[in-house]
Design a protein around this nucleic acid. Sequence first.
RNA 1: GUGGGUAUAGCUCAGGUGGUUAGAGCACCAGAUUGUGGCUCUGGGGGCCGUCGGUUCAAGUCCGAUUAUCCACCCCA
Length: 439
Amino acid sequence: MAEKLAAPRGTHDALPGQTPAWLWLENVLRRVANRFSYREIRFPTFEHTELFLRGVGDTTDVVQKEMYTFTDKGGRSITLRPEGTASVVRAFVEHALYAGPLPLKVYYIAPNFRYEKPQAGRLREHHQFGVECFGPASPAADAEVIGLAHGYINALGLKGIALRVNSIGCPVCRPQYHQALGTFFEAHRETLCHTCHDRLARNPLRILDCKNKPCAALAADAPAMTDDLCDLCRDHQAGLEAHLAAMGIAFTIDPMLVRGLDYYTRTVFEFVSDTIGAQGTVCGGGRYDSLVETLGGPPTPALGFGSGIERLLMMCHAQGLIPGDTDRCQLYIATMGGRAEVYAASLAANLRAKGICAERDLMGRSLKAQMKAANRSGAAYSLVVGDDEMETRRGILKRMDGEGSDAPVALEAEEILSALESQGCCGIPLSDAPACFAE
RNA sequence: GUGGGUAUAGCUCAGGUGGUUAGAGCACCAGAUUGUGGCUCUGGGGGCCGUCGGUUCAAGUCCGAUUAUCCACCCCA
C-alpha cells in the first residue's frame, strides 16, 4: 500500500456513522429558523482578504494571526472565510438588498476556517449555524434573535446552557468609556499581564475579558460600561431586558462580556456551557449597527449570531439527545444464481423508483452471508430470489424482526410494493418538500 | 504563539525493574449435514509497536529529536 495521508490538522471527517447526527441537528436548526421566517443564504467559501480586514477589524486576533490567506493565480489576496457575518453583509450590500423589504432575515450553515491550535471544541475548520437580521434598530429584534437561539437550544433538548448579555455601547458613548477604561488601567499598568499591555494600547475593552488572575481581579474594579452608556444605549438595553423577561428567557448581565470581533455595537450575548471543556461558548453574537456602512452600504442597523455546530453536537452527544438513525433499508433482496441476480437488479431498480429503500448483494456473498448483511442493514423485510422462486415467480416476504408472519408474494415490483404497503412499509416520494418544511 | 499528557491490529486497550516467533475484547471474513439473519461455538486475515537517531550483546520497553493527537493558556463558535 502507498503511504497513508491524514486530514489536515484541526479538520475532521464526518463518517457515515456520524452524518445522521449532523443531518438531525441541521434539520432542527433549519426548522427553528423557518419558524422565525429566516431564509437560507449561501455565499462563497473564500472572499477578498480586504472584506475581513474592514469587516472583522484588523486589530482582532482572528484577522491578525488566524486567517488562511493566500494569493491566487491572478495575484489577488484571497482568504478562506474565518466567520460568516462579513460575507452576508457583503452580499447584502453587493446585491442592494437594503432596497428591498426590511427586515431581511437570513440564516446559513457553513464552514469557517481559522488557523488555531486545535483543542476540545476548537478546530481549524468548524461549521457554524448563523443568522443575520438587517433593518431593525429596536431591541425587540435583539430579543427575537436571542429567542431564536433559545428556541433551538430548547428544541434540541439541551440543558445547562446559560445566557449572558451585555451592552458595549455605541460610537457615541464607547469612546468615552474607552477613555475611562484606559485611564483606569493605565494607573495599574504594572499589575497587567504582557498581552494586556498590548490591549491597553489597542482596545482596553479586551482587558475585561482576560483570564489572568491579576487582570481579572483588576477588571472587577474597573468602571463598568453600564455606567457610561449614553441614554439611547441605556434605553436599548432596558428594552431588551424587558423583552427577554416577557419571553421568559433567563439571562444574566455580564459586564465583563466582550466579544473579540470589532464590529459589535450595543448588545452582545453568549450562550455558554461548562460541560464541553474550556471552549464552552455554543452561540455568540450581537448587534453591529455600523457594519453595513463600513462595507459600503447605507447606514443599516443589523444583528446576528454564530453558533458552532461541532460544539452543539458535542453537547447533544453528552446529553444523549441524538435520535437513532431512521434511514433504514426497507427490503433486502437476497439472490442465488446468475439469473436471480440479474432479476434482483430490475426488482430493486423498480422498487427504488417507487420510493422503497431496496438493497441487494453486490459482494458475491453466500445466501447465509447475504442474510447477515440484511440483518446488519436494518432491513425490515428480506426476499430470497433463487432457482425455485424464478421457476414459480413467487417468493416470501420475510419479516426481519422475527415477529408476525411472513407473506407470500408474486415476484413483481408492483406486487411486492403493495405487500409492503399493506404492512405499513411505504415508499417515500422521491421529490419531497424541503427538509425544513417537513413535519 | 506558550505549556502539559499520549502514541502497540480498523476500534478500545494489555504488554512489572530492557531478554526468543507481540496479545485480548470488539469489528471484519469463513465454517458448525451443503437455500435463510440475530444467540452460541470454531477457525482465519490483519501490527517494521508514529518516524528518525542514540545507549546496549539485546529496545514495544531507556534517552533525544521530530511528527501527529489530546488537554489547557490565548482567542473564539
